[in-house]
Design a binder for these strands. Structure first.
Length: 565
RNA sequence: CGGGGUGUGGCUCAGCCCGGUUAGAGCGCUUGGUUCGGGACCAAGAGGUCGGAGGUUCGAAUCCUCUCACCCCGACCA
């Protein structure tokens, strides 16, 4: 492609809307333009990268037996009512105003609808169906360019198996394919255990790219390889002690002590002798959650136990439920009305301090075996930086990550709801056992740029660079330079190399160099007068900045070797 | 949805607090000329109802009210 003929709207100034590097560079390098919040037009060079990414995805999906579909984005709302996901998605789903239709935010329903009619026997399974489609989600707050948009491209695939072992296999195949896809796209990534949230199902993993632009927090450990979304991450922290002396409960006046730190320092005890009480409402049922000391409650873990609808009690609900305000609440005496649960660190502990359900009073010597009846103990705790990994062999780091893929073992949630059944070897009817696997295409592009850029521009890695080579004719007014550049363009193209040829007559050399660094092709071939006099042509590797000269005779081989290596 | 911020030529911004000729700059664009290895120079041009509506005033980019859009923080996020 000739730069003089193509549409490459590069800009020098940083767009004021863009904050993170990938967003700035996607605008500056002319990959895309914003149409509205969270909605982008992809321009030729940006779409070219998208197509490369999609091609890699196709190849790896096909390699595990995937079959590509093209499914409608416009769906009848009834379809989504069958699985009760109109409610589950709520305002996130776009609704069509003048027809009972929705814009699909994902495609489990459409796939299951097809499978229901056609996958009727164990004999045809497993099946892996995928598509690469535009998805629509009415995000309350689009942000970070393409990382959180209202319209985006997703590769989504679905597996259908007759057995749970089959699901495990389909899931593992996807995990392997995903590793290859991200690696080929030049990304370094973590695979983390994740919450399956409202998708339901028995297990899920996220593919995360470490980045400050990320919205998720991950607990990772390079020594042990442990990696989990903090939503489900665990660590090896000691339980609260159980002391042999066990004094009776005792009231203590604790004026102005609201926080655990205040109570602990007032009573001159470590915070790990305090049991913090948090009040939630699960529909109409009050729930008291006991946490040790300053441990943060992980609400995702709470939801895993109680369901999605559990919510923190409001401040004005507390006195009527407990007799006290936040800061003086405790479990003793609330058994009759409350469901009382506790974090595992507190299991069977004694000698604790808790609120007395009377403002400015606490109780000493709380014994969780003796003084209250705990309905159950669970891991409710949010892990923290520096804690030991669950196996005790490493140390957790908390990093931000961008989710570029998520794989779910759905199980039978959708097939049961939609009565998508098959006959097994015994002739017995069962719901299809399904998996669901997504990849955000734009996110891969943005993450690639987040991981591969410098102050001058993008550094495309070979797998997804829009062109192999950026050929710069330093001076189109010099006949020899122009002639040599044109020859190289023709020869390299004939060799199957994709070349972006800067043949502009009205751009200065410096301008062309800046554009080449911004656009970021892996190799720059620079044809200039001085080098040509010595029968040489300059090469520059964008990644490293390394420059070297090749002789005119060797240049084609040199470039071909670089591109193919 | 809560908090904060910004809307002025294609882009980045100044001007607004303290109202007063014909609204500015740099970049980009057009034309001509000179340049030609790290975003060149000279000259001449084109391009804006200052996001929109209403109001105050002799007079509004500037003050007031409403509204829309966009960005950031939070909430939310299969």
């Amino acid at each position: 492609m000739r730069l003089s003929k193509g549409f490459f709207p590069t800009v020098k100034e940083v767009p004021s809307d863009a904050v993170i590097p990938s967003h700035q560079l996607m605008i500056r390098a002319g990959l895309m333009r914003q149409l509205a919040a969270g909605i982008f037009s992809f321009l030729p060079i940006g779409y070219s990268v998208m197509k490369k990414v999609m091609q890699i995805i196709r190849e790896e999906m096909d390699a595990i037996g995937g079959q590509e579909f093209h499914l409608p984005a416009l769906n009848p709302i009834e379809l989504w009512e069958e699985t009760d996901r109109v409610k589950a998605f709520g305002d996130i789903m776009f609704h069509i105003k003048n027809r009972a239709m929705v814009l699909a935010p994902t495609h489990e329903e459409v796939i299951t609808n097809i499978a229901k009619d056609h996958v009727k026997t164990y004999k045809v399974m497993p099946q892996i169906w995928y598509q690469i489609q535009t998805k629509f989600r009415n995000e309350p707050r689009p942000k970070s360019g393409v990382l959180r948009g209202r319209q985006f491209t997703m590769k989504d695939s679905y597996s259908m198996d007759a057995t749970w072992q089959g699901l495990d296999k389909s899931y593992d195949l996807h995990a392997e394919a995903y590793k290859k896809i991200y690696t080929r796209c030049g990304l370094s990534f973590h695979i983390v255990g994740a919450s399956s949230g409202a998708m339901g199902g028995s297990g899920s993993q996220e593919f995360m790219v470490e980045s400050n632009a990320g919205e998720d927090n991950l607990a990772v450990c390079t020594e042990t390889g442990y990696a989990a979304n903090v939503e489900i991450a665990t660590s090896l922290v000691p339980n609260a002690e159980r002391f042999s002396t066990n004094d009776a409960l005792q009231d203590v006046h604790t004026p102005m002590c609201k926080s655990i730190d205040e109570v602990a320092s007032f009573l001159n005890l470590p915070t790990t002798r305090c049991a913090k009480s948090l009040i939630f409402m699960n529909d109409k049922q009050p729930v008291l959650v006991l946490m040790l000391g300053n441990d943060q409650l992980n609400e995702t873990k709470l939801q895993t136990v109680f369901g999605q609808d559990i919510r923190p009690a409001q401040a004005d609900e507390l006195p009527q439920l407990t007799g006290a305000d936040a800061g003086s609440i405790g479990p003793v005496g609330l058994e009759s009305n409350f469901t009382i649960v506790a974090d595992k660190r507190l299991e069977n502990a004694n000698g604790l301090v808790c609120g007395a359900n009377k403002n400015d009073y606490h109780l000493l010597n709380l014994d969780l075996q003796r003084d209250v009846s705990i309905n159950s103990y669970h891991d409710f705790r949010m892990v923290e930086e520096g804690e030991p990994t669950p196996d005790g062999k490493g140390t957790l780091r908390i990093v931000k990550g961008i989710e570029v893929g998520h794989i779910f073992k759905l199980g039978t949630k959708y097939s049961s709801a939609m009565k998508a059944n098959f006959l097994d070897e015994q002739g017995k009817e069962n719901p299809l056992i399904m998996g669901s696997y997504g990849i955000g295409v734009e996110r891969i592009v943005a993450c690639h740029i987040e991981q591969h850029h410098d102050e001058y521009g993008i550094q495309w890695q070979k797998g997804i660079a829009p062109y192999d080579v950026h050929l710069i004719c330093v001076n189109m007014n010099s006949d020899v330079v122009k002639k040599k550049s044109e020859e190289l363009y023709a020869e390299l193209t004939a060799k199957g190399i994709s070349v972006l040829f800067d043949d502009r007559t009205d751009a200065s050399a410096g301008f062309k160099f800046k554009d080449a660094d911004l656009l970021g092709m892996p190799l720059q071939v620079i044809v200039g007068e001085k080098n040509l006099k010595n029968n040489e042509i300059e090469l520059k590797e964008r990644n490293s900045g390394k420059r070297w000269n090749a002789s005119v005779e060797n240049i084609i081989n040199e470039v071909v070797n670089f591109v193919k290596s």
